[in-house]
Design a protein around this nucleic acid. Structure first.
Lengths: 217, 217
DNA sequence: ACCTGAACACCGTTCAAGT
DNA sequence: ACCTGAACACCGTTCAAGT
């Protein structure tokens, strides 16, 4: 009798939720409606479950954001290391890094304070960069500051991507700011995206300058 | 009779609140207990007023953050422009900028999407930088991207300041990441602050590279 | 014009209760 | 072990009511 029932004491029903399923739905929510839509209640609804059920699998929303960060970080392309010349490899990696996080700006403050030990993908990425820099002959003590400097620029540039296109509109104060107004007009006339142009210029300057340091052995 | 009363119809009582007083108390809250303590309720309490009273003076919390941003931006030191040689002036300004916002990290996402037209102090600062860059002979169309690149690095570096000091601890994965582990140890052995070192190296590289551009006339 | 008090529509999170 | 439903302690913001 009772043995034919698939659900009985000692035979617990398979869990509906899991880290993978939760993270997957969270990312789907984010890509559809942005990070504002990522609330525990909306996420629970999308999973067909009550909000409190989530807490059987994740300790906090902060924890969930770290899971997401892992997935996002995995999208960064590190394939250039060991394949391209070091300047080109760094530029290709940094560009991919910046473009990925331009789609996940609210994650940036999370990562900035996240111990890398909690993020295997990030460690693996750093190992790639560190190996390349040391292979180039950069002094050991200069490797981390070089990476951090690049990353700071990458994160700052990714955030800038979210700025409105008319952020530099100064029609109201034109007379008081002749140089700035002229510069804005000239840049606009080129027709190129300000964020992209700024990133490319800065990245080239940064990579060149950091590798030209006197810390080469 | 009724004339001796200081408070009567047609003679409204002086307002308790004002933009200045609100902003001042908000900054005081922030400097004492950080941005987490800056809630409309806490702010109202610090002003001895009910939370709803604030909304007679400020449209939203976002608006309040913009007021604060104005005050904070005013702390950035631009005195080096026109006084020091351009490389030195940019470095001094950028360093002050970064150090100021290291104390106001949660403001950075606010600024990043804030139209500069809403922020007179920011416009004035940009005018200084733009004038200096044009005076150096930088092409008009290169001025804004140069400023944005510097600012992205400044904001990213300010955020990095909030990272825990042991953020690069990888004791658990040591064997899988030899280069990274070695780099961390070497940097730590120097005894210098990672954020500061990274900022200084990156800033020098950035300023040198941006000013060495072929966009000079 | 400016302030109070109550209320609203949310948050993230906890916890006893069920299976 | 895992889920539900109710509850808690907050948020920012609105609004009728008072002066």
């Amino acid at each position: 009798m009772s043995t034919e029932s698939p659900r009985r004491a000692g035979r617990p029903r398979k869990a509906i939720l899991s880290r993978d399923r939760i993270t997957e739905h969270a990312l789907s929510l984010v890509s559809q409606d942005g990070y504002d839509a990522l609330t525990m209640q909306q996420l629970a609804r999308s999973l067909g479950v009550s909000p409190s059920a989530l807490y059987n699998h994740v300790d906090s929303k902060q924890d969930l954001l770290q899971w997401i960060q892992e997935l996002v970080m995995a999208q960064v392309d590190t394939s250039a290391f060991g394949k391209l010349e070091i300047h080109e490899a760094l530029i290709q990696w940094a560009t991919s890094y910046r473009n990925v996080f331009a789609l996940h700006i609210p994650l940036i403050p999370v990562i900035a304070v996240l111990p890398v030990s909690d993020s295997p993908r990030t460690i693996a990425m750093y190992e790639h960069v560190a190996e390349t820099l040391r292979g180039r002959g950069l002094a050991d003590a200069a490797v981390i500051p070089t990476i951090v400097a690049l990353e700071s620029f990458i994160f700052g540039s990714a955030m800038d991507t979210g700025a409105p296109h008319d952020i530099f509109d100064t029609s109201n104060h034109r007379e008081a700011t002749p140089h700035f107004t002229q510069a804005v007009a000239a840049q606009r006339a080129t027709g190129v995206n300000t964020s992209d142009d700024s990133f490319e210029r800065g990245l080239r300057a940064l990579v060149t300058g950091l590798l030209a340091s006197r810390d080469l052995t």
